[in-house]
Write a protein that binds this DNA or RNA. Structure first.
Lengths: 117, 117
DNA sequence: TTGCTATGGGATAAATTATTCCCCTATTGC
DNA sequence: GCAATAGGGGAATAATTTATCCCATAGCAA
């Protein structure tokens, strides 16, 4: 793995949630898994801008943080399904709030974001 | 500024909120400004792990996204105060939800995060 | 004159995160 | 034998984000 050089701080709740949720695609992964897209290939289809590699990596991190579980069926070709853990499910309302805010202010945000370079 | 090479996508609400909230210190900046710590030096004291420079940069981005306003008093030495805009204030409940989740699961999160490297 | 004040920002290095490319598994079907 | 399948991961490199350093402003006080 990568050994960090700048120590992380885990003081407050914001630090903590940041630690498990940062990562460009993690939130979307959780969201789509929750919607029932459990297999890696489906997830890739849902998130075409992410490379296959990063999705794997971030899924593994989510797994390491007990937010998702991975079930491997011993068949060939392999079949894999991810599911949210109970812990992971508690994040759904949180993600929902984030998405809702973005949706509520979509127009405005889009123009604000596009205006600066 | 920095000219991005990978285009951003602004499809859903999650993309949008991510765009204005990503940045290592932005959430905390908003939070502390909301708590009444309006001056740069105070914010620096509150967030000692961030360099002065990044805070300036991220504050400027927040300003560009209409989440905060900056008031410069024409005195020497300079005096500056940041405040949340009405738009910025709508983010406070969202941030609150994030922090709450982190606090609710603090124990567990800390050990999960520390175990992997 | 020198230093202090609070704030801003350019330049460059370092850290972190994500992308690309390419190879691997073991079976079924042509 | 050879491609197709669904998924995994190493290595090198590119992209992006943060950090470090250091200089600048303009009065007032020692």
């Amino acid at each position: 793995m990568y050994e960090r050089k700048i120590p992380l701080n885990l003081n407050c709740g914001l630090d903590l949630i940041g630690e498990v949720l940062y990562g460009k695609w993690k939130i979307r992964l959780l969201w789509f898994i929750n919607e029932g897209h459990q297999r890696p290939s489906e997830l890739q289809r849902k998130i075409p801008d992410a490379s296959r590699r990063v999705l794997n990596i971030q899924l593994k991190e989510l797994e390491g943080h007990d937010l998702v579980t991975k079930k491997i069926y011993p068949v060939v070709p392999p079949k894999v399904e991810y599911s949210l853990t109970d812990f992971g499910k508690t994040l759904i309302p949180v993600i929902s709030v984030l998405g809702q805010w973005g949706d509520d202010h979509a127009e405005r945000l889009r123009s604000l974001i596009l205006k600066d370079s």
